[in-house]
């Protein structure tokens, strides 16, 4: 369970990233955060694994207030909270397998990780996760030989390899085309259901949010302006969240449902 209690974040330049957020996210939920760019979605998500540090309030993850974490305890938190990025963030010159095994770094000693001395189970786990996203045949390819969609699947495999309790995804499909976007979202949804991993995804596209989310949280200017089950959301709700009418580029399109 993740709980935001009166959480605020003011950047050093005075910008308010988050304003007094109070949200409870239950275990196993698939939450989609929507909002225009600059609404604070990214700050919201990055607070959960402390890539940014909120300046006020409490943020409870797995029963602990994570704002006090630093050094070792912070790395323990990040082992539990996996993250997927818009630009995949793979090491382009390394092989797919090496990128995926990087998910075990939090569990592996510095010395062992430098000399690639991973236990057999870790290697098998990495390979199994590549199989789950159907990219096991690219095992020894260099990451920069893969297409965007393939790279994002590798980054999902990397996250799975760290055996997280929570997966954060920051605009995971913004750099992909519509069919690939749906493929990536389906993998995320499937993993969420099969492994009961709490999943928080930032999205801009309203059709994708409605299709994949259990629950939608709307943000504007650092504040939560909507919070409700995806089934109750309509285009009207989005217009209220965005503060303007829906445009073509707010909709991803592609396949609607099979």
């Amino acid at each position: 369970m993740i709980e935001f209690k009166n959480l605020s974040l003011v950047y050093p330049n005075g910008n308010e990233g988050l304003k007094n957020i109070n949200i409870k996210i239950n275990e196993g939920e698939f939450v989609v955060i929507v909002g225009l760019s600059g609404a604070g979605k990214s700050t919201f998500i990055r607070s959960v694994n402390r890539l940014v540090t909120p300046t006020d309030g409490e943020l409870i993850v797995d029963g602990e207030d994570i704002l006090t974490h630093n050094g070792k305890s912070l790395r323990e938190l990040r082992k539990k909270v996996g993250m997927i990025f818009q630009s995949y963030n793979l090491v382009k010159r390394s092989t797919v397998l090496k990128n995926v095994i990087a998910g075990r770094l939090g569990y592996t000693g510095t010395f062992r990780s430098i000399f690639n001395m991973y236990p057999k189970e870790d290697m098998e786990l990495a390979y199994e996760n590549l199989k789950r996203v159907n990219i096991e045949n690219k095992l020894y390819s260099r990451a920069d030989e893969l297409s965007g969609g393939q790279q994002q699947r590798v980054s999902i495999a990397r996250v799975l390899t760290q055996k997280p309790k929570v997966i954060l995804a920051d605009e995971p499909v913004a750099s992909l085309d519509p069919p690939t976007s749906h493929q990536v979202m389906k993998y995320l949804k499937q993993i969420n259901q099969e492994d009961n991993i709490t999943t928080i995804v930032n999205l801009h596209f309203i059709d994708m949010a409605m299709e994949y989310a259990d629950r939608i949280i709307g943000m504007r200017a650092g504040e939560v302006v909507y919070d409700g089950p995806a089934s109750e959301v309509t285009e009207k709700t989005f217009e209220e969240i965005y503060g303007r009418t829906i445009r073509e580029d707010d909709i991803r399109g592609g396949e609607v449902n099979e």
């Binding site: 890539l51 090491v91 430098i114």
Partner: peptide, 29 residues
């Protein structure tokens, strides 16, 4: 590219691991 090192930090790697996994492969050649 600093994105990979962000990812390594986000998955719980320490400073040395981040340098070894995200920085070194990019600069070794």
């Amino acid at each position: 590219d600093m994105h990979p090192s962000e990812a390594i930090r986000a998955s719980g790697g320490n400073t040395i691991q981040t340098i070894w996994y995200a920085v070194v492969p990019q600069i070794l050649p």
